[in-house]
Amino acid sequence: MDPAFHSLFSFQTLFSDAGPRDGISRLKWSTLAWRIKCNEAVDNYWVDNTIDDFYKGDIPKWFSDEDLAADNNNYYVVQESELHENEWLHLLAEIAFYSKEGGSLRASPRLEIKKVVVETREEATREPRENLKADNAIFYISYKYNGDPSTGLAGDYKSIIRKTMDGKPGHMCLEVSEYCNTF
């Protein structure tokens, strides 16, 4: 709905769930279109060679405190206030949680984000908080699921989510590593 004019629009998306890749426990989701519905064909060809090799292959391990201290140009610790300004970070945490919980939840999970660190190789000279807007980035998110303890899912988690974009409108890929329960 267009809130300014209270008019309804049909929205069009093209989504692909590649599931686990190469026997590795990670999921890959791609969107190739998100737009107001129109008669134009969707460009469903992903241009992999536009993405830096840093964002290909295995998803990295969780960063160490030494990595974070040594490379503050490429790592950015998201401030508490920015979590509220960037609600989509909560969506990333939910995607990571849903990727492993097996479809048993029927409502939005109650997740409490503890820490988000963004790693990117894009424009290391820019303002560090701008790393949140990078087209290609790796998000390290620690969070707590405060749901029903009887499900066996309540507890603390860490997820690594790699976001890549090939530069075409509507194209974005999210890869989610297997989260680890940190009881």
Rank of each mutant, 00 (worst) to 15 (best):
N74M: 09
V42H: 02
Y45R: 08
W29I: 14
Q79N: 06
Y76L: 05
D48V: 08
G23Y: 12
T50A: 10
H84D: 11
F63P: 01
D58T: 06
S25A: 12
P60N: 01
I51S: 02
N44V: 00
E85Q: 15
N39A: 08
L83M: 10
D58V: 04
D65Y: 09
G23L: 11
N73F: 13
D65P: 08
K28Q: 14
D67R: 06
D48L: 04
F54A: 07
A70Q: 13
D67P: 00
D65M: 13
Y76G: 03
R35V: 09
Y55K: 04
S30V: 13
G57I: 02
P60A: 00
R26G: 05
I59Q: 04
Y45P: 00
S81C: 07
D22S: 14
W88Q: 10
E87P: 08
A33Y: 06
Y75L: 05
R26K: 13
N44F: 01
L27M: 15
S81K: 13
Y76S: 04
K56I: 02
T31C: 12
S81V: 12
A69H: 07
N74T: 15
A33I: 09
G19L: 07
A70E: 13
R35A: 10
E85M: 14
D53W: 08
W62M: 06
V47M: 03
W62K: 03
Y55R: 03
D58F: 06
Y55W: 08
D67M: 06
D17M: 07
V78A: 01
D22V: 02
T50N: 14
K37I: 00
Y76M: 07
F54M: 01
N73Y: 12
P60E: 00
I51V: 10
L83S: 01
N49S: 14
L32D: 04
K56E: 10
D53E: 14
N86H: 15
F54P: 01
S30K: 10
V47S: 04
D48Q: 08
G23T: 10
V47A: 05
S25G: 07
R26V: 08
E87V: 15
A18K: 07
A18M: 07
K56Q: 10
C38N: 15
K37Q: 12
S30N: 12
N39M: 01
D22K: 12
E80R: 14
V42M: 00
W29N: 07
N39V: 04
V47E: 07
V77A: 15
R21Q: 15
C38L: 00
L68F: 07
D22Q: 13
N49W: 11
I59H: 03
D53S: 11
I24H: 12
N74K: 09
E85R: 15
I51D: 01
E87W: 10
D17C: 11
L83Y: 05
D71S: 09
G23C: 11
V42T: 10
T31V: 14
V42A: 01
D67C: 03
Y45L: 04
W29L: 14
K61L: 11
E66A: 07
F54D: 01
N86P: 03
D17K: 06
L27E: 15
G19S: 06
D43P: 01
N72S: 10
P20D: 06
A41K: 08
S64D: 05
E82Q: 14
